[in-house]
Design a protein around this nucleic acid. Structure first.
Lengths: 249, 249
DNA sequence: CGGTAGTTTGAACTACGTCAAGGGTCGTGG
DNA sequence: CCACGACCCTTGACGTAGTTCAAACTACCG
Protein backbone atom coordinates (compact mmCIF):
# COMPACT_ATOMS: atom_id res chain seq x y z
CA UNK A 1 0.00 0.00 0.00
CA UNK A 2 2.83 2.35 0.80
CA UNK A 3 4.14 4.17 -2.24
CA UNK A 4 7.83 4.37 -2.95
CA UNK A 5 7.86 7.49 -5.08
CA UNK A 6 6.17 10.65 -3.92
CA UNK A 7 2.62 10.97 -5.23
CA UNK A 8 3.02 14.73 -5.09
CA UNK A 9 3.07 16.20 -8.56
CA UNK A 10 5.63 18.92 -8.50
CA UNK A 11 6.39 21.28 -11.32
CA UNK A 12 9.64 21.36 -13.24
CA UNK A 13 12.63 22.47 -11.28
CA UNK A 14 13.59 25.25 -13.67
CA UNK A 15 12.57 28.81 -12.94
CA UNK A 16 9.13 29.13 -14.28
CA UNK A 17 7.45 31.81 -16.37
CA UNK A 18 3.81 31.72 -17.26
CA UNK A 19 1.75 32.33 -20.34
CA UNK A 20 -0.31 35.46 -20.82
CA UNK A 21 -3.40 33.29 -20.63
CA UNK A 22 -2.37 32.05 -17.21
CA UNK A 23 -1.59 35.58 -16.02
CA UNK A 24 -5.05 36.83 -16.89
CA UNK A 25 -6.65 33.70 -15.51
CA UNK A 26 -4.81 34.08 -12.20
CA UNK A 27 -5.67 37.76 -11.87
CA UNK A 28 -9.31 36.80 -12.29
CA UNK A 29 -8.91 34.19 -9.58
CA UNK A 30 -7.40 36.57 -7.06
CA UNK A 31 -10.18 37.14 -4.54
CA UNK A 32 -9.88 40.90 -4.52
CA UNK A 33 -9.94 41.28 -8.30
CA UNK A 34 -12.67 38.76 -9.01
CA UNK A 35 -15.37 41.43 -9.10
CA UNK A 36 -13.65 43.39 -11.87
CA UNK A 37 -14.40 43.03 -15.59
CA UNK A 38 -12.10 41.66 -18.26
CA UNK A 39 -11.07 45.09 -19.47
CA UNK A 40 -10.15 46.27 -16.02
CA UNK A 41 -8.17 43.11 -15.35
CA UNK A 42 -6.36 43.50 -18.65
CA UNK A 43 -5.47 47.05 -17.71
CA UNK A 44 -4.31 46.03 -14.25
CA UNK A 45 -2.29 43.26 -15.83
CA UNK A 46 -0.13 45.94 -17.46
CA UNK A 47 1.05 47.00 -14.02
CA UNK A 48 2.35 43.56 -13.13
CA UNK A 49 5.77 42.15 -13.82
CA UNK A 50 6.62 38.51 -13.94
CA UNK A 51 9.35 36.68 -12.07
CA UNK A 52 10.36 33.03 -12.16
CA UNK A 53 12.01 31.12 -9.35
CA UNK A 54 13.12 27.58 -8.78
CA UNK A 55 12.63 25.43 -5.73
CA UNK A 56 14.67 26.73 -2.82
CA UNK A 57 15.12 30.23 -4.24
CA UNK A 58 14.40 33.17 -1.99
CA UNK A 59 11.93 35.70 -3.39
CA UNK A 60 13.07 38.22 -0.79
CA UNK A 61 14.55 38.34 2.68
CA UNK A 62 13.09 39.82 5.80
CA UNK A 63 14.57 43.27 6.25
CA UNK A 64 14.86 44.02 2.53
CA UNK A 65 13.07 47.25 1.54
CA UNK A 66 9.50 46.27 0.73
CA UNK A 67 9.11 47.36 -2.88
CA UNK A 68 6.60 44.94 -4.30
CA UNK A 69 3.45 43.04 -3.66
CA UNK A 70 3.56 39.46 -4.94
CA UNK A 71 0.84 37.23 -6.29
CA UNK A 72 1.58 33.57 -6.98
CA UNK A 73 0.58 32.37 -10.44
CA UNK A 74 2.10 28.93 -10.14
CA UNK A 75 3.91 26.93 -7.46
CA UNK A 76 4.19 27.06 -3.67
CA UNK A 77 5.85 29.69 -1.50
CA UNK A 78 6.50 29.71 2.23
CA UNK A 79 6.81 32.75 4.47
CA UNK A 80 9.21 32.38 7.35
CA UNK A 81 11.15 34.19 10.03
CA UNK A 82 14.64 33.25 11.11
CA UNK A 83 15.41 32.74 14.76
CA UNK A 84 18.76 33.68 16.25
CA UNK A 85 19.23 29.99 17.05
CA UNK A 86 19.12 29.22 13.32
CA UNK A 87 15.76 27.54 13.67
CA UNK A 88 13.21 28.91 11.23
CA UNK A 89 9.53 29.50 11.89
CA UNK A 90 7.11 29.05 9.02
CA UNK A 91 4.22 31.51 9.17
CA UNK A 92 2.34 30.66 6.03
CA UNK A 93 2.33 28.43 2.98
CA UNK A 94 0.91 30.12 -0.08
CA UNK A 95 -0.66 28.77 -3.26
CA UNK A 96 -1.59 30.30 -6.63
CA UNK A 97 -3.95 33.25 -6.30
CA UNK A 98 -2.60 34.33 -2.92
CA UNK A 99 -0.71 37.55 -2.28
CA UNK A 100 2.10 38.50 0.08
CA UNK A 101 4.97 40.94 0.46
CA UNK A 102 4.87 44.70 0.71
CA UNK A 103 1.35 45.61 1.66
CA UNK A 104 2.03 48.47 4.01
CA UNK A 105 1.51 52.01 2.72
CA UNK A 106 4.40 53.33 4.79
CA UNK A 107 7.02 54.26 2.25
CA UNK A 108 10.04 53.30 4.29
CA UNK A 109 8.90 49.86 5.39
CA UNK A 110 10.71 46.57 4.96
CA UNK A 111 9.57 43.01 4.46
CA UNK A 112 8.88 41.43 7.82
CA UNK A 113 9.27 37.89 6.58
CA UNK A 114 11.41 35.92 4.19
CA UNK A 115 9.70 34.31 1.19
CA UNK A 116 11.10 31.09 -0.22
CA UNK A 117 9.95 28.95 -3.15
CA UNK A 118 9.04 25.38 -2.22
CA UNK A 119 8.55 24.34 -5.84
CA UNK A 120 9.33 26.17 -9.06
CA UNK A 121 7.29 29.34 -9.02
CA UNK A 122 5.91 31.96 -11.35
CA UNK A 123 5.09 35.13 -9.42
CA UNK A 124 3.46 38.38 -10.50
CA UNK A 125 4.64 41.56 -8.81
CA UNK A 126 3.38 45.13 -8.60
CA UNK A 127 5.18 48.09 -7.13
CA UNK A 128 3.66 49.35 -3.93
CA UNK A 129 2.75 52.66 -5.56
CA UNK A 130 0.96 50.99 -8.46
CA UNK A 131 -0.97 48.78 -6.07
CA UNK A 132 -1.94 51.77 -3.99
CA UNK A 133 -3.22 53.46 -7.13
CA UNK A 134 -5.34 50.43 -7.94
CA UNK A 135 -6.79 50.49 -4.43
CA UNK A 136 -7.83 54.14 -4.67
CA UNK A 137 -9.24 53.65 -8.16
CA UNK A 138 -11.33 50.63 -7.14
CA UNK A 139 -12.53 51.06 -3.53
CA UNK A 140 -14.21 47.67 -3.63
CA UNK A 141 -10.87 46.04 -4.18
CA UNK A 142 -9.53 47.80 -1.11
CA UNK A 143 -12.43 46.49 0.92
CA UNK A 144 -11.73 42.96 -0.23
CA UNK A 145 -8.06 43.28 0.61
CA UNK A 146 -9.01 44.51 4.07
CA UNK A 147 -11.22 41.47 4.53
CA UNK A 148 -8.46 39.11 3.46
CA UNK A 149 -5.91 40.68 5.77
CA UNK A 150 -8.43 40.57 8.61
CA UNK A 151 -8.89 36.90 7.86
CA UNK A 152 -5.17 36.32 8.11
CA UNK A 153 -5.07 38.17 11.40
CA UNK A 154 -7.76 35.86 12.66
CA UNK A 155 -5.76 32.85 11.50
CA UNK A 156 -2.64 34.18 13.21
CA UNK A 157 -4.61 34.60 16.44
CA UNK A 158 -5.83 31.03 16.13
CA UNK A 159 -2.21 29.91 15.81
CA UNK A 160 -1.22 31.88 18.90
CA UNK A 161 -4.08 30.30 20.76
CA UNK A 162 -2.89 26.88 19.73
CA UNK A 163 0.73 27.42 20.58
CA UNK A 164 -0.36 28.69 23.97
CA UNK A 165 -2.66 25.90 24.95
CA UNK A 166 -2.27 22.74 22.89
CA UNK A 167 0.17 19.84 22.83
CA UNK A 168 2.56 19.14 19.98
CA UNK A 169 0.38 16.24 18.87
CA UNK A 170 -2.70 18.47 18.72
CA UNK A 171 -0.91 21.19 16.82
CA UNK A 172 0.42 18.74 14.26
CA UNK A 173 -2.99 17.14 13.78
CA UNK A 174 -4.57 20.53 13.29
CA UNK A 175 -1.87 21.71 10.91
CA UNK A 176 -2.34 18.61 8.77
CA UNK A 177 -6.06 19.32 8.55
CA UNK A 178 -5.41 22.94 7.67
CA UNK A 179 -3.00 21.91 4.92
CA UNK A 180 -5.39 19.29 3.57
CA UNK A 181 -8.09 21.92 3.48
CA UNK A 182 -5.93 24.16 1.35
CA UNK A 183 -3.95 21.65 -0.70
CA UNK A 184 -5.88 18.43 -0.35
CA UNK A 185 -6.48 16.30 -3.43
CA UNK A 186 -8.31 12.99 -3.59
CA UNK A 187 -5.81 10.28 -4.40
CA UNK A 188 -5.54 6.53 -4.08
CA UNK A 189 -3.25 6.93 -1.05
CA UNK A 190 -5.79 9.19 0.67
CA UNK A 191 -6.45 12.93 0.81
CA UNK A 192 -3.06 14.00 -0.44
CA UNK A 193 -1.44 17.26 0.61
CA UNK A 194 -0.25 18.57 -2.74
CA UNK A 195 3.13 20.00 -1.86
CA UNK A 196 6.51 18.57 -0.97
CA UNK A 197 6.56 18.73 2.83
CA UNK A 198 9.44 17.49 4.95
CA UNK A 199 9.35 16.67 8.66
CA UNK A 200 11.57 19.68 9.17
CA UNK A 201 9.07 21.98 7.50
CA UNK A 202 6.17 20.52 9.43
CA UNK A 203 8.19 21.10 12.59
CA UNK A 204 8.76 24.73 11.57
CA UNK A 205 5.01 25.16 11.18
CA UNK A 206 4.11 23.63 14.52
CA UNK A 207 6.87 24.94 16.78
CA UNK A 208 8.45 21.57 17.49
CA UNK A 209 11.54 19.67 16.44
CA UNK A 210 11.85 17.33 13.46
CA UNK A 211 12.26 14.43 15.89
CA UNK A 212 9.05 15.12 17.75
CA UNK A 213 7.22 15.61 14.46
CA UNK A 214 8.54 12.30 13.21
CA UNK A 215 7.38 10.49 16.33
CA UNK A 216 3.90 11.97 16.12
CA UNK A 217 3.61 11.31 12.39
CA UNK A 218 4.74 7.71 12.92
CA UNK A 219 2.09 7.28 15.58
CA UNK A 220 -0.61 8.71 13.29
CA UNK A 221 0.54 6.28 10.63
CA UNK A 222 0.40 3.35 13.07
CA UNK A 223 -3.10 4.46 14.06
CA UNK A 224 -4.06 4.32 10.38
CA UNK A 225 -5.00 7.97 10.24
CA UNK A 226 -2.48 8.97 7.58
CA UNK A 227 -0.32 7.56 4.86
CA UNK A 228 3.10 9.05 4.46
CA UNK A 229 6.52 8.85 2.85
CA UNK A 230 9.51 10.98 2.11
CA UNK A 231 8.22 14.56 1.80
CA UNK A 232 4.57 13.68 1.41
CA UNK A 233 1.55 13.04 3.61
CA UNK A 234 -1.99 11.93 2.81
CA UNK A 235 -4.87 11.81 5.28
CA UNK A 236 -6.91 8.64 5.49
CA UNK A 237 -8.96 9.45 8.59
CA UNK A 238 -9.47 13.21 8.91
CA UNK A 239 -12.21 12.71 11.49
CA UNK A 240 -9.80 11.03 13.89
CA UNK A 241 -7.29 13.83 13.43
CA UNK A 242 -9.98 16.40 14.07
CA UNK A 243 -10.91 14.69 17.30
CA UNK A 244 -7.28 14.73 18.38
CA UNK A 245 -6.98 18.41 17.48
CA UNK A 246 -10.03 19.19 19.62
CA UNK A 247 -11.47 21.81 17.27
CA UNK A 248 -10.13 25.13 18.51
CA UNK A 249 -12.73 27.76 17.70
CA UNK B 1 11.35 51.45 48.39
CA UNK B 2 8.57 49.00 47.69
CA UNK B 3 5.16 50.60 47.60
CA UNK B 4 2.30 49.17 49.57
CA UNK B 5 -0.54 50.57 47.52
CA UNK B 6 -0.63 50.18 43.78
CA UNK B 7 0.78 53.19 41.98
CA UNK B 8 -1.49 52.44 39.03
CA UNK B 9 -4.12 55.12 38.73
CA UNK B 10 -7.27 53.32 37.77
CA UNK B 11 -10.53 54.95 36.92
CA UNK B 12 -13.66 54.72 38.99
CA UNK B 13 -15.20 51.30 39.15
CA UNK B 14 -18.62 52.40 37.94
CA UNK B 15 -19.61 51.96 34.34
CA UNK B 16 -18.25 54.97 32.61
CA UNK B 17 -19.76 57.33 30.09
CA UNK B 18 -17.83 60.11 28.49
CA UNK B 19 -18.46 63.74 27.69
CA UNK B 20 -19.16 64.96 24.17
CA UNK B 21 -15.83 66.76 24.29
CA UNK B 22 -14.04 63.51 25.01
CA UNK B 23 -15.91 61.72 22.23
CA UNK B 24 -14.83 64.25 19.63
CA UNK B 25 -11.33 64.37 21.01
CA UNK B 26 -11.00 60.58 20.83
CA UNK B 27 -12.34 60.38 17.30
CA UNK B 28 -9.69 62.88 16.29
CA UNK B 29 -7.06 60.73 17.98
CA UNK B 30 -8.06 57.55 16.19
CA UNK B 31 -5.26 57.00 13.65
CA UNK B 32 -7.58 56.42 10.73
CA UNK B 33 -9.74 59.49 11.32
CA UNK B 34 -6.92 61.89 12.13
CA UNK B 35 -6.74 63.17 8.56
CA UNK B 36 -10.38 64.26 8.55
CA UNK B 37 -11.62 67.75 9.35
CA UNK B 38 -13.71 68.81 12.34
CA UNK B 39 -16.94 68.85 10.37
CA UNK B 40 -16.42 65.38 9.02
CA UNK B 41 -15.55 64.07 12.47
CA UNK B 42 -18.63 65.71 13.89
CA UNK B 43 -20.73 64.03 11.24
CA UNK B 44 -19.12 60.65 11.80
CA UNK B 45 -19.66 61.12 15.51
CA UNK B 46 -23.41 60.92 14.83
CA UNK B 47 -23.00 57.34 13.73
CA UNK B 48 -21.42 56.27 17.01
CA UNK B 49 -23.18 55.05 20.09
CA UNK B 50 -21.76 55.08 23.55
CA UNK B 51 -21.50 52.21 25.98
CA UNK B 52 -20.15 52.12 29.53
CA UNK B 53 -18.67 49.09 31.26
CA UNK B 54 -17.10 48.39 34.57
CA UNK B 55 -13.99 46.41 35.35
CA UNK B 56 -14.52 42.73 34.62
CA UNK B 57 -17.52 43.26 32.33
CA UNK B 58 -17.55 41.50 29.01
CA UNK B 59 -18.09 43.77 26.00
CA UNK B 60 -18.90 40.71 23.89
CA UNK B 61 -18.11 37.02 23.71
CA UNK B 62 -16.38 35.12 20.97
CA UNK B 63 -19.04 33.54 18.78
CA UNK B 64 -21.57 36.33 19.23
CA UNK B 65 -22.75 37.80 15.91
CA UNK B 66 -20.33 40.59 15.06
CA UNK B 67 -22.56 43.63 14.88
CA UNK B 68 -20.33 46.49 15.90
CA UNK B 69 -16.91 47.94 15.67
CA UNK B 70 -15.63 49.32 18.98
CA UNK B 71 -13.32 52.22 19.73
CA UNK B 72 -12.10 52.77 23.27
CA UNK B 73 -12.58 56.30 24.61
CA UNK B 74 -11.48 55.57 28.14
CA UNK B 75 -10.12 52.58 30.03
CA UNK B 76 -8.39 49.31 29.15
CA UNK B 77 -9.82 46.31 27.32
CA UNK B 78 -8.31 42.90 26.73
CA UNK B 79 -9.06 40.56 23.85
CA UNK B 80 -8.92 36.88 24.68
CA UNK B 81 -9.77 33.39 23.55
CA UNK B 82 -10.94 30.65 25.86
CA UNK B 83 -9.26 27.28 25.77
CA UNK B 84 -11.18 24.09 26.41
CA UNK B 85 -8.99 23.56 29.47
CA UNK B 86 -10.40 26.76 30.94
CA UNK B 87 -7.10 28.55 30.52
CA UNK B 88 -7.51 31.83 28.64
CA UNK B 89 -5.13 33.30 26.09
CA UNK B 90 -4.81 37.07 25.92
CA UNK B 91 -4.25 38.29 22.36
CA UNK B 92 -4.19 42.01 22.86
CA UNK B 93 -4.51 44.75 25.44
CA UNK B 94 -6.14 47.88 24.07
CA UNK B 95 -6.03 51.51 25.13
CA UNK B 96 -8.05 54.64 24.24
CA UNK B 97 -7.99 55.39 20.51
CA UNK B 98 -7.72 51.74 19.50
CA UNK B 99 -10.42 49.79 17.67
CA UNK B 100 -11.54 46.17 17.77
CA UNK B 101 -14.55 43.97 17.18
CA UNK B 102 -16.46 43.39 13.97
CA UNK B 103 -14.24 44.50 11.15
CA UNK B 104 -15.08 41.87 8.59
CA UNK B 105 -17.39 42.81 5.74
CA UNK B 106 -18.90 39.34 5.62
CA UNK B 107 -22.43 39.82 6.84
CA UNK B 108 -22.78 36.56 8.71
CA UNK B 109 -19.54 36.72 10.66
CA UNK B 110 -19.08 36.41 14.40
CA UNK B 111 -16.60 37.86 16.86
CA UNK B 112 -13.52 35.67 16.98
CA UNK B 113 -12.43 36.87 20.38
CA UNK B 114 -13.94 37.82 23.68
CA UNK B 115 -13.49 41.42 24.85
CA UNK B 116 -13.32 42.14 28.57
CA UNK B 117 -12.91 45.42 30.44
CA UNK B 118 -9.82 45.55 32.69
CA UNK B 119 -10.82 48.92 34.16
CA UNK B 120 -14.00 50.92 33.86
CA UNK B 121 -14.46 51.69 30.19
CA UNK B 122 -16.26 54.08 27.89
CA UNK B 123 -16.51 52.62 24.42
CA UNK B 124 -17.85 54.06 21.18
CA UNK B 125 -19.52 51.66 18.78
CA UNK B 126 -20.62 51.79 15.13
CA UNK B 127 -22.66 49.24 13.28
CA UNK B 128 -20.71 47.34 10.67
CA UNK B 129 -22.85 48.82 7.91
CA UNK B 130 -22.27 52.38 9.05
CA UNK B 131 -18.56 51.77 9.27
CA UNK B 132 -18.54 50.27 5.81
CA UNK B 133 -20.28 53.38 4.53
CA UNK B 134 -17.65 55.58 6.11
CA UNK B 135 -14.93 53.52 4.46
CA UNK B 136 -16.42 53.88 0.99
CA UNK B 137 -17.06 57.58 1.51
CA UNK B 138 -13.50 58.27 2.65
CA UNK B 139 -11.09 55.95 0.82
CA UNK B 140 -8.13 57.35 2.72
CA UNK B 141 -9.67 56.11 5.93
CA UNK B 142 -9.90 52.65 4.43
CA UNK B 143 -6.25 52.76 3.51
CA UNK B 144 -5.33 53.71 7.04
CA UNK B 145 -7.42 50.93 8.47
CA UNK B 146 -5.71 48.48 6.12
CA UNK B 147 -2.33 49.68 7.34
CA UNK B 148 -3.34 49.29 10.97
CA UNK B 149 -4.65 45.76 10.44
CA UNK B 150 -1.50 44.88 8.53
CA UNK B 151 0.49 46.17 11.48
CA UNK B 152 -1.46 43.94 13.83
CA UNK B 153 -0.86 40.98 11.55
CA UNK B 154 2.83 41.70 11.73
CA UNK B 155 2.64 41.88 15.51
CA UNK B 156 0.78 38.57 15.63
CA UNK B 157 3.47 36.98 13.48
CA UNK B 158 6.11 38.33 15.84
CA UNK B 159 4.25 36.68 18.72
CA UNK B 160 4.09 33.36 16.87
CA UNK B 161 7.79 33.62 16.22
CA UNK B 162 8.43 34.19 19.90
CA UNK B 163 6.21 31.40 21.12
CA UNK B 164 7.97 29.09 18.69
CA UNK B 165 11.54 29.90 19.56
CA UNK B 166 11.99 31.70 22.87
CA UNK B 167 12.00 30.70 26.52
CA UNK B 168 9.37 31.75 29.02
CA UNK B 169 11.83 34.20 30.56
CA UNK B 170 12.50 35.83 27.19
CA UNK B 171 8.83 36.07 26.33
CA UNK B 172 8.00 37.68 29.66
CA UNK B 173 10.85 40.17 29.35
CA UNK B 174 9.72 41.09 25.87
CA UNK B 175 6.10 41.40 26.87
CA UNK B 176 7.00 43.75 29.71
CA UNK B 177 8.90 45.94 27.28
CA UNK B 178 6.00 45.92 24.84
CA UNK B 179 3.58 46.90 27.60
CA UNK B 180 5.89 49.63 28.87
CA UNK B 181 6.12 50.96 25.32
CA UNK B 182 2.37 51.23 25.12
CA UNK B 183 1.43 52.05 28.70
CA UNK B 184 4.66 53.23 30.28
CA UNK B 185 4.61 56.30 32.49
CA UNK B 186 7.57 57.82 34.31
CA UNK B 187 7.06 57.36 38.03
CA UNK B 188 9.15 57.35 41.16
CA UNK B 189 9.02 53.54 41.28
CA UNK B 190 10.29 53.31 37.67
CA UNK B 191 8.70 53.17 34.23
CA UNK B 192 5.25 52.17 35.39
CA UNK B 193 2.93 50.05 33.28
CA UNK B 194 -0.31 51.98 33.63
CA UNK B 195 -2.83 49.20 33.98
CA UNK B 196 -3.76 46.71 36.66
CA UNK B 197 -1.89 43.56 35.62
CA UNK B 198 -1.96 40.34 37.60
CA UNK B 199 0.47 37.43 37.32
CA UNK B 200 -2.39 35.45 35.86
CA UNK B 201 -2.91 37.97 33.11
CA UNK B 202 0.78 38.19 32.34
CA UNK B 203 0.80 34.40 32.11
CA UNK B 204 -2.13 34.51 29.68
CA UNK B 205 -0.16 36.90 27.50
CA UNK B 206 3.02 34.84 27.46
CA UNK B 207 1.70 31.30 27.26
CA UNK B 208 2.90 30.19 30.68
CA UNK B 209 1.41 29.51 34.08
CA UNK B 210 0.98 32.04 36.88
CA UNK B 211 3.57 30.11 38.88
CA UNK B 212 6.24 30.34 36.20
CA UNK B 213 5.45 34.00 35.68
CA UNK B 214 5.79 34.64 39.40
CA UNK B 215 9.17 32.92 39.52
CA UNK B 216 10.49 34.91 36.56
CA UNK B 217 9.11 38.19 37.87
CA UNK B 218 10.65 37.52 41.28
CA UNK B 219 13.99 36.89 39.64
CA UNK B 220 13.76 40.12 37.64
CA UNK B 221 12.98 41.92 40.88
CA UNK B 222 15.97 40.33 42.63
CA UNK B 223 18.13 41.37 39.69
CA UNK B 224 16.91 44.94 40.22
CA UNK B 225 15.42 45.19 36.76
CA UNK B 226 11.85 45.82 37.86
CA UNK B 227 9.82 46.97 40.79
CA UNK B 228 6.57 45.22 41.43
CA UNK B 229 3.64 44.62 43.73
CA UNK B 230 0.14 43.28 43.70
CA UNK B 231 -1.18 43.90 40.16
CA UNK B 232 1.47 46.37 39.11
CA UNK B 233 4.92 46.35 37.53
CA UNK B 234 7.40 49.14 36.84
CA UNK B 235 10.61 48.77 34.88
CA UNK B 236 13.82 50.09 36.40
CA UNK B 237 16.30 48.61 33.91
CA UNK B 238 14.69 48.22 30.47
CA UNK B 239 18.10 47.74 28.84
CA UNK B 240 18.73 44.59 30.88
CA UNK B 241 15.30 43.24 29.97
CA UNK B 242 15.94 43.96 26.31
CA UNK B 243 19.16 42.02 26.45
CA UNK B 244 17.35 39.09 28.02
CA UNK B 245 14.65 39.25 25.37
CA UNK B 246 17.33 39.14 22.65
CA UNK B 247 15.61 41.57 20.29
CA UNK B 248 13.54 39.42 17.95
CA UNK B 249 13.46 41.20 14.59
C1' DC C 1 -9.16 42.54 62.42
C1' DG C 2 -10.78 38.87 59.57
C1' DG C 3 -11.58 37.33 54.82
C1' DT C 4 -10.69 37.26 50.05
C1' DA C 5 -7.77 37.37 46.30
C1' DG C 6 -3.31 37.82 44.56
C1' DT C 7 1.38 36.10 45.08
C1' DT C 8 5.35 33.26 46.37
C1' DT C 9 7.85 29.08 46.99
C1' DG C 10 8.84 24.15 47.19
C1' DA C 11 8.88 19.44 45.45
C1' DA C 12 7.47 15.99 42.23
C1' DC C 13 6.40 15.04 37.61
C1' DT C 14 6.27 15.10 32.41
C1' DA C 15 6.21 16.57 27.64
C1' DC C 16 9.38 17.74 24.80
C1' DG C 17 14.12 18.88 23.29
C1' DT C 18 18.72 17.21 22.56
C1' DC C 19 22.19 14.08 21.16
C1' DA C 20 23.34 10.17 18.70
C1' DA C 21 23.14 6.16 15.80
C1' DG C 22 21.03 3.61 12.15
C1' DG C 23 17.93 2.80 8.08
C1' DG C 24 15.32 4.03 3.93
C1' DT C 25 14.82 6.57 -0.43
C1' DC C 26 16.39 9.16 -4.17
C1' DG C 27 19.38 10.96 -7.73
C1' DT C 28 23.67 10.56 -10.10
C1' DG C 29 27.47 8.82 -12.40
C1' DG C 30 30.16 4.94 -13.51
C1' DC D 1 21.57 -1.13 -14.29
C1' DC D 2 23.89 -1.09 -10.25
C1' DA D 3 26.51 1.39 -6.59
C1' DC D 4 27.53 5.24 -4.16
C1' DG D 5 26.57 9.33 -1.61
C1' DA D 6 23.31 12.73 -0.07
C1' DC D 7 19.44 13.62 2.15
C1' DC D 8 15.46 12.54 4.76
C1' DC D 9 13.39 9.92 8.20
C1' DT D 10 13.13 6.91 12.42
C1' DT D 11 14.09 5.41 16.98
C1' DG D 12 16.34 5.24 21.47
C1' DA D 13 18.32 7.12 25.73
C1' DC D 14 18.81 10.95 28.39
C1' DG D 15 18.37 15.79 30.14
C1' DT D 16 15.57 19.72 31.44
C1' DA D 17 12.42 23.74 31.18
C1' DG D 18 8.25 24.33 32.57
C1' DT D 19 3.77 22.40 34.53
C1' DT D 20 1.23 20.75 38.32
C1' DC D 21 -0.10 20.28 42.98
C1' DA D 22 -0.03 22.09 47.32
C1' DA D 23 0.81 25.03 51.15
C1' DA D 24 2.07 29.32 53.17
C1' DC D 25 2.39 34.18 52.83
C1' DT D 26 0.91 39.17 51.98
C1' DA D 27 -1.70 43.10 50.43
C1' DC D 28 -5.93 45.14 50.36
C1' DC D 29 -10.97 45.80 51.71
C1' DG D 30 -14.82 45.86 54.36
Amino acid sequence: MRRRKTPVEIELTEPHLCSMDLRLHILHEVPFFSALGHDQIAEINQQFHEKGFQSGDYLYFSGDPAESLFIIAEGRVKLLRHATSGKDVMLDLLVPGEFFGGLSTASDSSYFETAQAITSVCALTVSREAFRTILTRYPDVGMRVLDLVTGRLEAAHATIHQLSSQSAEQRIAFTLLKLADKLGEAHEVGLLIQTPLSRDELAEMTATTPETTSRVISQFQRDGWINTGREWIALTDPAALLETAEIPT
